[in-house]
Computed example of a mutant assay.
Amino acid sequence: MIRTGTVLGPSDVLRLKGIGAGMAPYPDVFPTTEAFAALRNEADGLKVFPASLLEYRGGLEALNAVLPSDVKTYAVGAVGPRNFAHRQSAGIGGFAL
């Protein structure tokens, strides 16, 4: 499935739908206040941006500890092979490169 980076408005969603992207845009969130606001507005997944700032001192683990278990989380920002394993162990389900 094709996913997208930052979607700035409804016109972006329509354009992506028009090219057959077949995707649901996920909002960028940081910190948990934004995550819960997005979930209240029917988001079913979240892009943690910049994930690199939450990587230290257990931030990713803490975020995932309070989110509902069915929420998909994706790390965005400073993502690469050197930190895939750590972020996955913290509960991140995917990455945007």
Rank of each mutant, 00 (worst) to 15 (best):
M1G: 13
I2R: 14
R3G: 07
R3L: 11
T4D: 06
V7W: 00
V7S: 07
S11F: 10
D12L: 03
D12I: 02
V13F: 03
V13K: 09
L14T: 13
L14D: 15
R15D: 12
K17R: 15
K17S: 13
I19G: 10
A21R: 06
G22W: 08
M23F: 08
P25R: 08
P25S: 12
Y26L: 11
Y26G: 00
P27E: 04
D28W: 13
V29G: 01
V29K: 00
V29A: 00
F30H: 10
F30M: 15
T32A: 14
T32S: 13
T32N: 09
E34V: 06
A35S: 06
F36G: 00
A38H: 04
A38F: 01
A38N: 04
R40E: 05
N41I: 05
N41H: 15
E42Q: 15
E42D: 14
A43S: 10
D44L: 02
L46P: 03
V48P: 01
F49P: 03
F49A: 05
P50G: 08
P50N: 10
A51K: 04
S52V: 14
S52K: 07
S52N: 13
L53E: 08
L53N: 04
L54C: 06
E55A: 15
E55L: 09
Y56N: 13
G58T: 05
G59I: 07
L60M: 07
L60Y: 03
A62Q: 10
A62H: 00
L63T: 04
L63M: 08
L63N: 02
N64C: 12
N64G: 03
A65E: 01
A65Q: 04
V66M: 07
V66H: 03
L67W: 03
P68R: 00
P68N: 00
S69I: 00
D70Y: 05
V71W: 01
V71C: 06
K72A: 08
K72Y: 09
T73P: 02
T73L: 05
T73F: 02
A75S: 10
V76G: 03
G77D: 03
G77F: 02
G77V: 05
G77K: 04
A78T: 06
G80K: 10
P81G: 09
N83D: 04
N83F: 05
N83M: 01
F84I: 13
F84N: 09
F84K: 12
A85M: 13
H86W: 11
H86P: 02
H86N: 09
H86F: 12
Q88L: 14
Q88W: 12
Q88Y: 12
S89V: 12
A90E: 05
A90C: 15
A90S: 12
G91I: 09
G91E: 06
I92V: 14
G93I: 03
G93W: 07
G94F: 00
G94L: 02
G94R: 04
F95H: 07
A96R: 08
A96M: 14
A96F: 15
A96T: 15
A96D: 08
A96N: 14
A96P: 10
L97Q: 12
